[in-house]
């Protein structure tokens, strides 16, 4: 290996690893300064915290809701577009760029205004307003992933074969198409999970108490338990992203690299 390459890689590794190490180090410290390493008390603080379980449950259910709605909405749509309206595909691809031009902080301002005056079960509940926002946020990632999935199979042949054998449209979609794009749908779902579990901007401005909001609250108030909590949230995000990479390894889901978590 060339010496300069070695130096650059080493510097990059240090830059990436030190903050992770520091977080681990913090999470193992006692709440009093100067006491020796190591204690697991911060982890037990987290696990015995009611708000932790409460907010993580909200975030997780929100993620599931977002995934279900998105798949129900986009799988049939993408199927239809690939089968009957391939000319519409560039239009949708262009729309998928919109969340890049409209960052979450701008999007939430628009959404809050658009939906002001809607009934409280929608506007005042995470299951309504926040889920809607997250479906929009997840749309580009759903699109890129599903699009790659649909392109890698022969939609026309599969549909004709299935229809000729007497299957209904629903059966075709559920029993023929869906199993063939399973890994693309799974990849999109993992990505959505990672986005929703880490999304702070929209939740904060719309004043909903999700997991990242709780994390920020602990960051501000209790340094050492925050280390443990941060590490747990890393594990959630990283777990979702690594599953995504494993699922999507064969096809390049490379379009989907930027999420809205920051």
């Amino acid at each position: 290996m060339a010496p300069s390459a070695f130096v650059w890689l080493l510097l990059a590794a240090a830059y990436f690893i030190v903050p992770l190490y520091a977080t681990l180090d913090f999470s193992l410290k006692e709440n009093k300064i100067g006491t020796p390493c190591c204690t697991l008390s911060n982890y037990s603080w987290v696990l015995h915290n009611g708000d932790f379980w409460h907010t993580i449950k909200i975030s997780f259910l929100l993620a599931i809701e977002t995934i279900v709605i998105s798949l129900l909405l986009f799988v049939p749509t993408m199927y239809f577009v690939h089968l009957k309206l391939p000319r519409l595909r560039p239009v949708i691809a262009f729309m998928a760029l919109v969340p890049f031009v409209v960052p979450p902080i701008v999007m939430v301002v628009g959404l809050l205004r658009t939906f002001r005056g809607t009934p409280n079960w929608f506007y005042g509940q995470p299951w309504g307003f926040l889920a809607t926002a997250y479906v929009i946020l997840a749309f580009p990632y759903m699109f890129f992933s599903l699009d790659a999935g649909f392109r890698s199979i022969d939609v026309h042949t599969l549909t004709e074969a299935s229809r000729n054998l007497g299957a209904s449209w629903t059966t075709t979609l559920v029993r023929v198409i869906l199993p063939n794009i399973r890994s693309a749908a799974l990849a999109a779902s993992f990505l959505t999970l990672a986005i929703v579990m880490g999304e702070f901007t929209i939740a904060n401005l719309a004043a909903f108490h999700t997991f990242p909001i709780f994390l920020q609250y602990v960051n501000e108030s209790q340094g050492f338990p925050a280390g443990a909590l941060t590490l747990l949230s890393f594990l959630i995000t990283w777990g979702a992203m690594l599953s995504l990479l494993l699922v999507g390894r064969k096809r390049g889901v490379r379009g989907a690299v930027i999420t809205g978590a920051r």
Binding site: V18, P19, F200, T230, T237, L245, I258
Partner: peptide, 28 residues
């Protein structure tokens, strides 16, 4: 692989990781 994960990594946990690194009590 790491970049794929880290590019998606940001927000509150990232801020904390840096506080733990370079904050007043940070490791570095």
């Amino acid at each position: 692989t790491f970049s794929g994960v880290a590019a998606n990594f940001g927000g509150i946990p990232l801020a904390f990781a840096f506080i733990a690194t370079l904050g007043p009590l940070g490791v570095v």
